[in-house]
Every structure is written in C-alpha cells, then in structure tokens.
Design a protein around this nucleic acid. Structure first.
Length: 587
RNA sequence: GGGGUCGUAGCUCAGUUUGGUUAGAGCGCUUGCCUGUCACGCAAGAAGUCGCGAGUUCGAGUCUCGUCGGCCCCGCCA
C-alpha cells in the first residue's frame, strides 16, 4: 500500500513547527465531529496530536474523515497551525498547535475495541490479557515497558563499566534435583531423555568462574514450574551475576551501586550505601518475615518466658513443646470492634494456626478474654514487652517458631494494609544475612538447602556440618526492597570435597552427586577460584518502580495465576504425531 | 492440594439480603443535527446464553448442588 510516511511523531510538534507541512501516522485516539469541522487526536507511542479536518480547507478530505473511528490507523498530512487564541490544550505537550489536514489515508480500519484504550485501569484483567495488544497500546503499559527498557540499558551500562562480561548460557540444560520443579523438554534425538529449562543459570555461571571469566552478568529468562502469584510467573527475568576472588561485601557493594543507579536514574532519588544489614533471625523474630517491609513499625516481641508458668494451657504447652508465644502491638487497635476482631481471628486461622489471642490496653486497663487465664500482671507484662501504649491492642500467636513468626509476619502486613501504615513514597532497601544453610523438610524427611546446594557455610559454623547442621549459617544474603525479595545470592563452595559433604547432608549420595553434578565436581578439581554471586528479580524491581501491584503489569505477555496465556490459549494440546516423534505417550 | 472473593449489555457496575411486571444505569456503539472541540453538545436507537450444567419451585439473575474461569492468600517457589 502506498502512503505518505511520517515526517514527525505524534509527540514532536510544537509552536516552533507552525507553518510546516508534515505527515503523521498513528491510531485515532478520539474523534470529535462537530458537523462542520472534525477534530481527531492522533496517537502513537510518542504522544498525541490534534488533527483538524475543515471542509473550507479540503472538502474531499473532510468527507473522507467522516469515516474515521477510534483506533483506525491512518496517515495524515497537513500544515501545522497555531491554535486560535483560547483553544490551546495544556494537557497535551503538542497542545499549542494542531495539524490542518489536506491529505488522509486510512491504512486500516478497526472494529470497536472490547475495552477503551484508556489510561484508567477499570477493565477486568482477563479481558486485558486476552486482548493484550490493545492493553499494551495504553499509555501506562507503554510506560512500564519503556521502564523495563531503561532498566536493561542501565544494567548493561553499569556492569560493562565495572568490567563484567555478558555471556549467554543454555536454555536447554540438565535437569537438577533440589529447588523448584523443572520444566522438562523431551529430546526427539535422544528417546526417553529430557532437557530442563533453567530455574537459573546457576551451574553454568559457576563453571564460567572456573573458566576464568571472573566477572559475569546476564539478563536472563528463568523458568520454575510452581504455582503463580502476583509477584511470581512461570517464566521471569533475572539479572544474573557472578564474581571470582570475592567475599560477601564485594558482591553487596556491586549490588548497592546498581541499586543506587536505578534509584537515581529512574526515580531521581539518592540512596545511601551501604544498605542496613539484618540477620535472618532478627528479621524473623522482629518482623515475622525473611523479607520484612521496614517502611512501617509493628515489631514483634517474644512472650514465651512471660507466659510459660501461666495458667493458660494453650500457651504453656506450646512453650513446653519448644514453641514460641509472640506478637506485636497494633497502635490504636484497642478500638477494634468485636466484629473486626472476629474477622482478624478468622484471617489468622486461615493461615493455618489455631487462633489469635489479643490483649487490649485501654484507659480502664486490660481488656482480654485470656486475662482470666494469664492474670492481670502477666497481661501487663506482655503489653510492656510489646511496647503497647494505652489504646493499643497486642495480637498474640502461639505455635512452633517458624509458624508463629511467619503468621505474625503475614498478620503484620495485613494490619499495615488495613490501617494504611505504608507510605508509598518511602523506599526501603536492606540486606538480610546469616540465613541458615538448611531447612528441614517434613514432607521429604530430610534437609533441604535454604538457598541452594552450592552455598558455602559460614566458616565459624563449618564444624556444625558434622553435628547439628540445621544450626549452621550460610554465606547467603538477600536484598529486600519494600518487603519484596529483589535479589538473593551467596558465596559458593569452590572445594569439591566440601561440596560433596553438603550434597551428603542434603541426602544426595556420591552416586547421585556424580550423576547430577559430576561435571561441577570435576570442574572444581581443576582450579576453581573462590567465587560468589547474586541474582536480581528483574520483574519485581520493575514492578516496584512502576508502582504496579503485580509483575504482570511490567511483563508484555504474562500468564494468569493458573499458568495460562489467555491471548493465544497456551498451553494447548498437540498432535499425536508430535508426541510420537518425542517418544511420549499420554497417560 | 486448601481458603477467600468475583462472574448480569461491548466495558464498568446496580439488582441477589426477602424468588414474582417487560432485567436497569453510566460509558461505549449506530443514526441524525451541529464549524473550535479536546470527557464536545443535542436527539433517537440497537444491544442480554444474568459464566456453564443440573436441581428445588406454579415461577430462579435471585435458593441448593456441581462445574468452568479471573484475582488474592496458605502450602509450594534451592
């Protein structure tokens, strides 16, 4: 099709262009047909420009323009004219001028869209996802994708400046035990064998260290076949980093530098480094989370010793079993009605604990259903320990250490949301360090790596690997921004005998270790430098900078929480012929 | 695997508590009028598988059961 190509974008024209003959291309954003004269706002990703069709100027073009409808794609030519006095539109950057049309080509018509191409988001998300190309036409979404673009550029520039090498690693890799469920890819050429999509390029980047590329980075897609969340997709993007001859502080310094630059170039905010460090234990016992949001207070306190001799069986028996009784004070929470408290108790129970106890501290003193068990004195001591003031309400959970604190952590966030305690203009960045090496998995009846199996133990705790391994701390660190884990990494094991030992603790015997990770153990025998690294959750950072509620809003083509892409109806069934070639038979 | 919540016109929603007239509103859409609008205005009109399927009932958008889908959370996510 022949048509005039644009001379300017829809965001270009200013008063200085008045008198010029121009051509614009784009989508009809809105039309205002006044009968005699027709106005349209023409939109492309650079902006909007008002085009005027006036029969006095061109009768034929004005007649053709009557056909224009929203989202038609056109090429329009005309003269840039200064708008008549008093008709400027200060909402548009191009609002001082309009284009008086004398030529028009309708490049493509458009059906009425299923939802308006509008800045306001009030359309259901499933509809937006089904018609993603329309959703992505909206300015807020274009801004989000441009933000991502900026982040890619900042990242590449930053790491290049610091002598990092960008290296691509395979997408078809070896399936490894441990960690998230792999996405498997059958091999046609090797019947019965499978590749896996990377949960992360972990093994490759460590081997690159052995190969001498002592500063590596990559912006890379990772895949985990786990349930989705607002901040979790099946496929997501990491900034993957690995460095040799370093310790924790070297990695953290590099990370802090990148975050500083992101904050400066994207948000215009100077952040101080180094970021505060918080131990895993303090994070959990203080805020009930290994990624606490420190933009607000609500700090937890341990009441176990206060209540262990009390008459309240739920508490005493829990403490006797080695559990914890803990909680935090809600400022002004004594004003909660019975209904609000019932609601909060139900919410807490839905998290999988027995219940939620509470003590209101009012001007009249203690108000609590458990006062008759604990006694006034203990209740007062609990209030004191929680730092409660008159008018506050101390929420208390009793269960094992893990359950108590994670429940309090979830509760803490819920309270903060309900009471509007979170200042959206605040940016809180901090490290969480001293993670345990291992978690005990009830399900699998064995230790599992808290970070991953290549994480080095804290040298001070190395002896614990032969004893109570669960007490051993790892050289792992997470970066937390506004309550979101946005990066996590560790110093790695670079010694094959220590690596074998850790595999053993994870229940991976020598045979299995050789089969699954033999290549790595081999590599470590040929001069592996001390090394460590980190990986950023790119989508999460983009989400936070965009002020979005979900990473779906910063991903061009995301999947629903059931892992479906509504636009292209994916995943879908395949032909038997395809399965045959892959030597696969469906159950 | 579990809990919560939502599903009514193209879109956003009201109506469901207490079953009962022809299922409404705003926006959008179509048509007509309108020469400086920019949320254009005015007038008229079209538009519904009340997610789907059973059941209860004289009668179901409304009640019951099941099911599908979106979103949030727990588990899971080294």
């Amino acid at each position: 099709m022949l048509y005039k190509k644009r001379t300017h974008t829809c965001g270009d024209l200013r008063a200085s262009h008045v008198g010029q003959s121009v051509t614009l291309t784009g989508w009809v954003d809105t039309r205002r047909d006044l009968g005699g004269v027709i106005f349209i706002d023409l939109r492309d990703r650079y902006g909007k420009t008002q085009v005027v069709f006036n029969p006095k100027h061109s009768e034929a073009i004005h007649t053709l323009a009557k056909e224009l409808r929203t989202e038609f794609v056109i090429s329009v030519s005309g003269y840039v004219e200064k708008r008549p006095d008093g008709t400027d539109n200060s909402k548009l950057l191009t609002g001082a001028i309009d284009v008086l049309a004398d030529d028009l080509t309708i490049l493509n018509k458009a059906e009425t869209t299923p939802f308006p191409i509008d800045d306001k988001i009030e359309t259901n998300e499933d509809l937006r996802l089904k018609y993603r190309y329309l959703d992505l036409r909206r300015e807020p979404m274009q801004k989000n994708l441009l933000l991502r673009h900026t982040m890619y550029q900042i990242t590449r520039r930053y790491f290049d400046e610091h002598s990092f090498v960008e290296i691509e690693t395979p997408v078809l890799m070896k399936s490894t035990p441990e960690g998230a469920r792999d996405f498997l890819v059958p091999s046609r050429i090797n019947p019965g064998k499978f590749y896996a999509l990377p949960q992360s390029p972990q093994t490759y980047k460590q081997i690159l260290m052995v190969a001498g590329y002592d500063r590596y980075f990559q912006i890379v897609k990772c895949f985990r076949d786990e349930d989705l969340r607002a901040d979790r997709q099946l496929e997501f993007t990491q900034i993957d980093v690995e460095m040799s001859f370093v310790d924790e502080s070297d990695i953290q310094t590099i990370v802090e530098g990148l975050m500083q630059r992101f904050m400066k170039e994207i948000k215009g905010i100077d952040v101080a480094v180094p970021f505060p460090r918080l131990t895993y234990k303090d994070a959990m016992e203080g805020y009930g989370s290994d990624k606490p949001d420190l933009r607000f207070d609500l700090k937890c306190a341990d009441f176990s010793t206060l209540v262990k001799e009390s008459g309240f069986k739920v508490f005493t028996e829990n403490v006797k079993k080695g559990g914890v009784v803990a909680g935090f004070a809600v400022p002004g929470g004594a004003a909660y009605t019975r209904n609000q408290m019932d609601n909060l108790v139900d919410f807490t129970k839905s998290l999988g604990v027995g219940g939620l106890a509470y003590i209101k501290l009012t001007e009249k003193g203690i108000e609590s259903a458990i006062e008759k068990f604990l006694g006034n004195d203990v209740c007062m001591k609990i209030c004191e320990a929680a730092g409660a003031k008159v008018g506050d309400n101390v929420l208390i959970v009793a269960d094992n250490w893990q359950k108590t604190y994670t429940t309090l952590g979830t509760l803490r966030l819920e309270i903060a949301k309900r009471m509007n305690l979170i200042d959206d203009n605040k940016w809180n960045l901090h490290w969480v360090v001293d993670f345990p090496m291992f978690d005990y998995s009830e399900e699998e009846k064995r230790h599992v790596a808290m970070h991953h199996p290549f994480t080095a133990p804290n040298p001070e705790d190395a002896h614990l690997l032969d004893g109570d391994a669960t007490k051993a701390r790892a050289r792992a660190y997470d970066l937390v921004m506004n309550g979101n884990e946005i990066a996590g990494g560790s110093i790695r094991i670079h010694d094959s005998s220590l690596q074998s030992k850790v595999f053993g603790l994870l229940g991976i015997g020598p045979e299995e270790a050789k089969m699954k990770f033999g290549f790595m153990l081999d590599a470590f025998r040929y001069g592996a430098p001390p090394h460590g690294g980190i990986a950023f959750g790119f989508d999460r950072i983009a989400m936070l900078f965009a002020g979005a509620k979900s990473i779906r809003d910063v991903i061009a083509f995301p999947k629903t929480s059931s892992g479906v892409s509504l636009m292209d109806d994916n995943p879908s069934t395949v032909d038997t012929k395809q399965l045959d070639e892959l030597h696969i038979k469906l159950k």
